[in-house]
Design a protein around this nucleic acid. Structure first.
Length: 154
DNA sequence: AAGGCTGTCAACCGCACGTCT
DNA sequence: AAGACGTGCGGTTGACAGCCT
């Protein structure tokens, strides 16, 4: 878990990590008034953030029913299956995984599952088994050529 | 020990869509 | 019908931590 930071960036708030105080303000406000009205919420809650940021922070991090921690094997399998069916519809995929958010699923896919599929010889874009076996890359230019051939074949 | 590299994840941005007037 | 506004979604970025050399 990342620590709360106090950088110069926080003067403008944009791009700055949320502080404990900001989180508390948001939680308290939503406890009382409920979700919604994201445009007016920051001002009403005394936050120097845009509504979008508040919504994202709540949905991805502060919501009480969020399940945090590692994805299990069964969750991985489910995500792979759902991605094959739905494509990059992360919110739909996350909807099938209780306690998981679209952002979390998307990050997990990009950092873990994509590689997992590639190692298994499966194209993560179309979930088709590659004809040619995976071999270690020797020359960076080979990678570009491979990419081009994938693009041209789709 | 230190500097570079890579992986992870929170957060932002831009666009699309739905609703309201 | 169409423009304004609010919200949701997916792609991308940036910062940090840990590993490697």
């Amino acid at each position: 878990m990342r620590k709360y930071l106090f950088s110069e960036k926080q003067h403008s708030k944009k791009g700055a990590n949320w502080t404990y105080e900001e989180d508390q303000k948001l939680i308290d406000y939503i406890k009382i008034h409920g979700e919604g009205n994201w445009r007016t919420l920051p001002k009403a809650a005394g936050l120097q953030r845009c509504g979008k940021s508040c919504r994202l922070r709540w949905i991805n991090y502060l919501k009480p029913d969020i399940k945090r921690g590692n994805f299990g094997e069964d969750e991985d399998d489910l995500i792979i299956k759902l991605h094959a069916l739905l494509g990059n519809r992360w919110s739909l995929i996350a909807g099938r995984l209780p306690g998981r958010t679209d952002n979390e699923v998307k990050n997990h896919w990009n950092s873990n599952l994509k590689k997992k599929l590639i190692n298994m010889g499966i194209n993560p874009n179309n979930h088709r088994v590659n004809q040619t076996p995976i071999r270690p890359k020797q020359d960076p230019s080979e990678e570009e050529e491979e990419e081009e051939s994938v693009n041209s074949s789709s």
